[in-house]
Write a protein that binds this DNA or RNA. Sequence first.
DNA 1: CGGCGATGTTTCGTGTGCGAAACTTCTCTT
DNA 2: AAGAGAAGTTTCGCACACGAAACATCGCCG
Lengths: 187, 187
Amino acid sequence: MFRVRNFSSRPRSAARLERELARIPDVLKEQVDRIAEAIIYLYTESRRLTKDQAAKHGLTGPQLTVVKILDELGDLSLSELSDRIRAQNSTVTGIVDRMEREGLVDRKRSAEDRRVVHIRLTDKGHKLARQLDFEPFSIFRHALQQALEPAELVQLLALLDKLARWVRREVEETAGARAKKRASNDD
Amino acid sequence: MFRVRNFSSRPRSAARLERELARIPDVLKEQVDRIAEAIIYLYTESRRLTKDQAAKHGLTGPQLTVVKILDELGDLSLSELSDRIRAQNSTVTGIVDRMEREGLVDRKRSAEDRRVVHIRLTDKGHKLARQLDFEPFSIFRHALQQALEPAELVQLLALLDKLARWVRREVEETAGARAKKRASNDD
DNA sequence: CGGCGATGTTTCGTGTGCGAAACTTCTCTT
DNA sequence: AAGAGAAGTTTCGCACACGAAACATCGCCG
């Protein structure tokens, strides 16, 4: 089992990548494209629907996610929140700014470590959270449960998991090769 | 909110379906969450890598996509381009603005219909396109081929396809029920 | 011909999303 | 204890991304 030294191909490895791609029969290439398309479709559609749902309560998509997470887990530091929603700190700062402006959350400097800021749902935020019949990406989950058999779910997870693990390993490897400081924050 | 059961398309024992609707075992719920997470991960990671690739040529992710599409298909109207990259016209206007500023494309008003604008790759744009060894989301495709066996690819596609079809049908249905003017423009 | 709805594009306002730089606080080393 | 460096957050500049409204043009219908 050979592996690709450099996942994100720079010009040097272009030939090699092309050689590898060429080895795959056209039928499979077709399948691969359709898989990619399906994943993209599922992701974007789910996001759009989440946004629609959020709009009904005067929220944006990410804001709804934050409300749900804080309601479920309690106060979180900004970094913890960033990890949860898989966004950069600078992005979350903006989201929290706007939510604070709307009176949904507030910030409280930590006593133990004065660098960290705890994000906390206000009463208004908690009230809103209780009204939300809705989990982020719940449409997605709902779809999974409705569209597939339990056995198929297990199968699908196994395949996606294998794929995700491969990508994760590959990304970390090239990140290491590039000597980037990008730490691997696993779930 | 979600009316689901289409008995017509899936002849299945009512008892079983009801059991599924009633309560999904926790084990499966867990699986469902992890599937969602995997898909989100794969999508965002692929996007990030595409962006990295584009940056090597002084482009952004969407701009790389536009260059590739125009190089392959020739001139397109802005609307056609929007359809291709699945974005709103207003979004593409901005992308084209910046690419025009960089001298990668230019706009030409159509003679037949003076409302439409043709987007065209400049020489510089074509030259750049030839340097790009890289297809949008090719990393994704590459990963699929490296990480999974052909048989697994087929399996994965079947499952995702089933899932995507279900979602598509559901979205169209609820969109129709809400009597929104949002026309379903399918591929 | 003249109006009028449909179509194609842009403008505007707002909200993500990212990376680099600035800033504050903590921690470790000497 | 001073200073170097790490860690947490914010600021800044940029590029999407979307929907609503403005604008221009087309097509049709009377």
